[in-house]
Design a protein around this nucleic acid. Structure first.
Lengths: 167, 167
DNA sequence: TAAGATTGATTAGTCAATCTTA
DNA sequence: TAAGATTGACTAATCAATCTTA
């Protein structure tokens, strides 16, 4: 342990233990609800959701991969599975380039509509209702700061992902 | 969408998008550093760390599984791998019961000592330094509240896990 | 009968290598 | 040459079933 890398204080350690607990347990909890009632992983749900908010329900893969916070390889594997389910399609990117677009099908949209209420309810139960309104607002700001470090490229795509879904 | 399950407001949605981003990116970032420099997953690191803080560097498996926030099955698979590396041993639980204890070996302890500085530095970079001291304190409290919902059984074990390591 | 632990099968994610096209 | 995308091999996690012993 050198001087330029001070060991964490007991308070910092306690904080990190709690943070670690949350990042170890919250994703599995979210996944479990989706898997159980809709047969979707949270990652797959995120794909469907991101597409439903996109113009024409289509996005280029490399962009979609960033919005879902995963690698291109991961997206490619997931697309294969989801295409087999009939939830998405792939087609050459309209305008230009060597790109490929993912498109949400009607079946995919129906799947999302079916899964959304239960998922939203679970997020409310696990996060929104577990915190005071003030804490919830703080949590949003904290995560915004963390994302600037862990996913700097995705930041500007996030507000785009907040568009209302195209019903 | 029924009345008893109101749709999230735009603010709540934005908050959740940021939270989701963090839980999708922070664990892989932590894992990547450990994997790259020490060949450990964060889960395996947590096992070694929990054992190093235990009396006699030993803990019963079912207890250890909770402290590492994973299922018994997951721990059992991990123990097999880590035993093969010589980092841990299994032995029948001393006092009573049909339990099995995990014990940290000297090699496992050395592995932990080797991995710790880089891991701690990464946690500081990704979390501690990314937030103001006030935010960090808020984050700890927020995660404490969330854990009460996502891992109610682990709460009382957490303070035990804060014991200083037995060097 | 149930807690504690293990096992094997299935599935998903990562990593490195490859392919295609501007 | 590099961005965008895909592939296959390897590794790890989940889930259900099983085993053991109080």
């Amino acid at each position: 342990v050198s001087d330029d890398a001070p060991w964490p204080s007991r308070d910092q350690l306690a904080t990190w233990m709690h943070v670690a607990g949350v990042i170890m347990t919250l994703p599995p909890a979210i996944d479990a609800q989706l898997k159980r009632y809709s047969g979707l992983s949270f990652y797959e749900y995120s794909i469907l959701d991101a597409l439903s908010r996109a113009p024409n329900r289509a996005r280029q893969l490399c962009e979609l991969a960033q919005m879902a916070y995963g690698s291109q390889s991961r997206l490619s594997h997931a697309m294969k599975r989801m295409e087999k389910q009939g939830w998405v399609m792939r087609r050459d990117c309209a305008g230009h380039a060597r790109g490929v677009e993912a498109v949400l099908t009607d079946e995919g949209h129906a799947k999302l509509i079916e899964a959304a209420p239960g998922h939203v309810q679970e997020v409310r139960r696990l996060v929104v209702d577990a915190l005071t309104p003030e804490q919830l607002a703080q949590f949003g700001e904290i995560c915004r700061s963390l994302l600037a470090v862990t996913a700097p490229n995705a930041t500007h795509l996030l507000e785009e992902g907040l568009s209302p879904p195209n019903d």
